[in-house]
Computed example of a mutant assay.
Amino acid sequence: MNSKPLLSIVSSARATGTARAIAARRVAAALVFGVSAAVLASAPVQAASITSLVKSVKFDDDKGVASDLGTGLDPNALDEQGNPLLVLAAREKSDKVAALLLDNPKTKIDAEDRAGENALMLAALNGDLDLVKLLITKGAQVNKTGWTPLHYAAANGNDDIAKLLLGYSAQVDALSPNGTTPLMMAARGDHMSTAKLLLDSGANINAKNQIGLNALDFAKQYKAPDAIKGLSARMAQSGGQSDNAAAPQNGAK
């Protein structure tokens, strides 16, 4: 005879029956939505694996990333903020992980985060010349609609990267959604050496954004002394007209 109290046996039977009923409903729901019970059961493990993968990306742990991808995880997976792994690697300057991801044929090199930023843009912003070179070599788009890698390089005065991008036919007067050019971004940050590089490459000093501001206006608004002095002298030299008086190259909105 079973030594367990009757109440315990009844409770256990009920619990077992309830567990079986719940399991049956999960399987039924999975079948209705075309998802196998095995996939349903593995969901928490998958979530945990993505968390581990994102952590490895942030710490530039290429071996950890390789191990996680080896289990079948997507190299284009997103973190909780919607950042593709390659974009996250560029943001964190995790160059070893970025190189690993770029060697994976499934990786989408121009994938964007929720703000429309891609890996090349963030590498240009961070001054990560080696990663910029690698991304371009792997086929990253130098020009894109809206904000471009050249805007981002100019914003932080990363001259070497701006020069590299221009060498790969970056549009010197690319327009952001509000009509801002890379020259305006250089002026805003008081990066006169970058501004000179852009002007020498044909940037239109008289170009205006949607609210009618040109690069010199940006320099004045953001109290950028070197840019104010340099752009004022450049405009005086040209009699108020840029060396490239034609309409700016567009190709972007």
Results as ranks from 00 to 15, higher is better:
residue 32 V to K: 15
residue 32 V to C: 08
residue 33 F to M: 15
residue 33 F to L: 13
residue 33 F to A: 10
residue 35 V to H: 10
residue 36 S to D: 11
residue 37 A to W: 04
residue 39 V to Y: 12
residue 42 S to L: 05
residue 42 S to E: 05
residue 44 P to S: 07
residue 45 V to S: 15
residue 45 V to G: 14
residue 47 A to C: 05
residue 47 A to R: 14
residue 47 A to G: 05
residue 47 A to L: 12
residue 48 A to L: 13
residue 49 S to R: 12
residue 50 I to Y: 13
residue 50 I to G: 11
residue 52 S to K: 08
residue 52 S to E: 05
residue 54 V to W: 02
residue 55 K to F: 06
residue 56 S to L: 05
residue 56 S to N: 12
residue 57 V to C: 08
residue 58 K to R: 15
residue 62 D to P: 00
residue 62 D to M: 04
residue 63 K to G: 06
residue 63 K to S: 14
residue 63 K to W: 01
residue 64 G to H: 11
residue 64 G to A: 12
residue 64 G to C: 07
residue 65 V to E: 06
residue 65 V to G: 01
residue 66 A to S: 14
residue 74 D to Y: 00
residue 74 D to T: 06
residue 75 P to R: 06
residue 76 N to F: 03
residue 77 A to H: 09
residue 77 A to W: 09
residue 79 D to I: 09
residue 79 D to A: 13
residue 81 Q to S: 14
residue 83 N to Y: 07
residue 83 N to I: 05
residue 86 L to V: 03
residue 88 L to P: 04
residue 89 A to I: 02
residue 91 R to K: 15
residue 92 E to A: 08
residue 92 E to T: 07
residue 93 K to Q: 11
residue 93 K to A: 10
residue 93 K to C: 02
residue 94 S to Y: 03
residue 95 D to V: 14
residue 95 D to P: 01
residue 96 K to N: 15
residue 96 K to E: 14
residue 97 V to M: 01
residue 97 V to Y: 00
residue 99 A to P: 00
residue 100 L to H: 05
residue 101 L to W: 01
residue 101 L to F: 09
residue 102 L to Y: 06
residue 103 D to S: 15
residue 103 D to M: 08
residue 103 D to A: 14
residue 104 N to Y: 12
residue 104 N to L: 02
residue 105 P to M: 07
residue 107 T to S: 12
residue 107 T to V: 11
residue 108 K to H: 13
residue 108 K to D: 10
residue 109 I to S: 07
residue 109 I to M: 10
residue 109 I to K: 15
residue 113 D to N: 15
residue 114 R to G: 12
residue 118 N to W: 05
residue 120 L to H: 00
residue 120 L to Q: 04
residue 120 L to T: 09
residue 121 M to K: 09
residue 122 L to G: 04
residue 122 L to T: 08
residue 123 A to L: 04
residue 124 A to D: 07
residue 124 A to P: 00
residue 124 A to G: 05
residue 125 L to A: 14
residue 128 D to M: 02
residue 129 L to M: 13
residue 129 L to P: 00
residue 131 L to H: 13
residue 132 V to F: 08
residue 132 V to C: 14
residue 135 L to R: 06
residue 136 I to H: 03
residue 138 K to R: 11
residue 140 A to N: 05
residue 144 K to P: 00
residue 144 K to W: 03
residue 145 T to K: 12
residue 147 W to S: 09
residue 150 L to C: 04
residue 151 H to I: 03
residue 152 Y to W: 02
residue 152 Y to A: 11
residue 153 A to W: 09
